[in-house]
Design a protein around this nucleic acid. Structure first.
Length: 435
RNA sequence: GUGAGCGUAGCUCAGCGGGUAGAGCUCUGGAUUGUGGCUCCAGCGGCCGGGGGUUCAAAUCCCCUCGCUCACCCCA
């Protein structure tokens, strides 16, 4: 079906109503928890000058080197679809002088990001992230708070995930460490696999990620960055861990955890799931104290993380997903022209009373209207026909137990008011899996 | 960018030692003149991804192409 205009671009996709149920559960949960910690929403453009990302994320990163959607606009400016949001949020923070005021600014965002990569499980060219950024403090406790919040988020979604943390030092202590590491790898080069030999030069820290058996003994003996931090970074890292311990947060210290963006310093962390494929990172984040200055702003301490919404929606447990399924309170089935007109008036009235209702417009038989009501999982069906019209009543049927009875208009109003919030999270009475 | 696998009905797939397409689900209607889910019956629905070649004959064999998927790299 490689035809014409009826095809989306590779790596993009339509999110259909059924799939979006899981997304809404995830998004609602994120907003709820972010607010508990005092985060406020910010929305920035999804398109920015290329230079913002190139400088902010780092010219040598994969993202900037080969994954950006970059093009010239009609004004001959080089612009880029954002590959991530942190650089934009920092830009907005500086541009709008949000640093004036209290010493701490907490922001969160939601939105699409774009990276020109080959599609894979859990990876798209247009994908969605939520994220948070804290500007101001660099106290270890705020690092721990942010990490703890991320974990609480995945936990309350019922998603199984584990936390990995590391400190990758600062501009002062990282370069000397990398030098030491490179030299050691050079000495062991003959024992390394082909990939690792390449990594030894290009991205030494990645050697830690190698899964090749023969590399393991060498990797285990490599100096870790955590043991080569400057005293300030070392102190910071151990205090972050102490705060995590105090909070009862379980974590694994992973020496090879480095993150792919240049701006990270000190605390780096990831939350990973076993339920995904090769792309198993659900949340990634860390501290980025120098980013503001890199893009021309004042010195700003900052830490944050990004959540992969696509991946979370993908592994959301079924019971959580089910809790977000919507159903109309009422379906109005009618027979005859007079009843149809009555149904329209009634629908208007019901909606004004904050109840949801639907009806059929195809002049279908009562039977097929009932089928439709069942298919859309309506909680009740209201039947309006000649009998009812002549008596000025309706027949109200409760779908889950098939009980039905006659009601007067005021009784209907009262009944609907009494079953408040029945619209969501109720067990389905309709077509169910039978197991 | 590299490698592997796969493209047949709206969906999931069978058919692939050539002989002018099949199942399940979905959908529509009926069995039940005004009543859903279950069951039964019937029906709708396919240039078998596209192009070329071999052959009397190709969904089936060969070549090219496009698309999808997974993996490497890297990341959410």
């Amino acid at each position: 079906m490689a035809e014409s205009l009826i095809n989306n671009l590779p790596g993009t996709r339509d999110l259909l109503p059924e799939e979006l149920v899981a997304w809404h559960v995830v998004e609602d949960c994120a907003r709820r928890i972010f607010r508990q910690y005092g985060f406020l929403e910010i929305r920035t453009p999804i398109i920015e000058p290329t230079e913002l990302f190139a400088r902010g994320i780092g010219e040598d990163t994969d993202i900037v080197g080969k994954e950006m959607y970059t093009f010239l606009d009609r004004g001959n400016r080089s612009v880029t679809l954002r590959p991530e949001a942190t650089a934009s949020v920092v830009r907005a923070y500086i541009q709008n002088a949000l640093y004036r005021g209290s010493g701490i600014t907490k922001l969160f965002y939601f939105g699409p990001m774009f990276r020109y990569e080959k599609k894979q499980k859990g990876r798209w060219r247009q994908f969605y992230q939520a994220g948070v950024e804290v500007f101001g403090p660099d106290h270890p406790a705020i690092d721990a708070e942010v990490i703890e919040m991320a974990l609480r988020f995945t936990e309350s979604l019922g998603v199984e995930a584990s936390l990995q943390i590391n400190s990758i030092g600062c501009r002062r202590c990282r370069p000397p460490y990398l030098e030491i590491l490179r030299r050691r790898l050079q000495g062991e080069i003959s024992g390394l696999c082909e990939d690792c030999r390449r990594r030894a030069h290009t991205n030494s820290l990645r050697v830690f990620d190698c899964k090749v058996e023969t590399c393991q003994p060498i990797i285990l003996n490599l100096p870790s960055i955590a043991d080569n931090l400057c005293s300030e970074c070392s102190e910071h890292f151990s205090r972050v861990k102490k705060h995590l311990d105090d909070a009862g947060v379980a974590y694994e210290t992973v020496p090879g955890l480095v993150r792919g963006l240049d701006y990270y310093v000190r605390t780096a962390f990831e939350i990973v799931s076993r339920e995904l494929g090769a792309q198993n990172t659900i949340i990634g984040g860390g501290r980025y104290d120098g980013l503001s200055e890199v893009i021309g702003g004042p010195p700003v301490k900052a830490i944050g993380f990004a959540v992969g919404l696509d991946r979370l929606a993908m592994i959301l447990p079924e019971e959580k997903r089910r809790s977000g399924v919507w159903r109309p309170d009422l379906f109005i089935a009618y027979k005859g022209e007079a009843a149809f007109r009555r149904a329209l008036l009634l629908a208007r009235d019901i909606r004004r009373r904050e109840r949801s209702c639907m009806l059929d417009f195809s002049d279908a038989s009562l039977k097929s209207q009932m089928r439709l009501a069942n298919k859309i999982n309506a909680a009740h069906v209201l039947i309006v026909g000649d009998d009812e019209l002549s008596r000025d009543t309706y027949t109200l049927k409760r779908m889950h137990d098939s009980r039905q009875w006659e009601v007067t208009p005021p009784e209907l109003t009262e009944y609907l008011a009494s079953c408040a919030d029945q619209g969501e999270g109720q067990p389905r009475s309709g077509p169910r899996r039978i197991e």
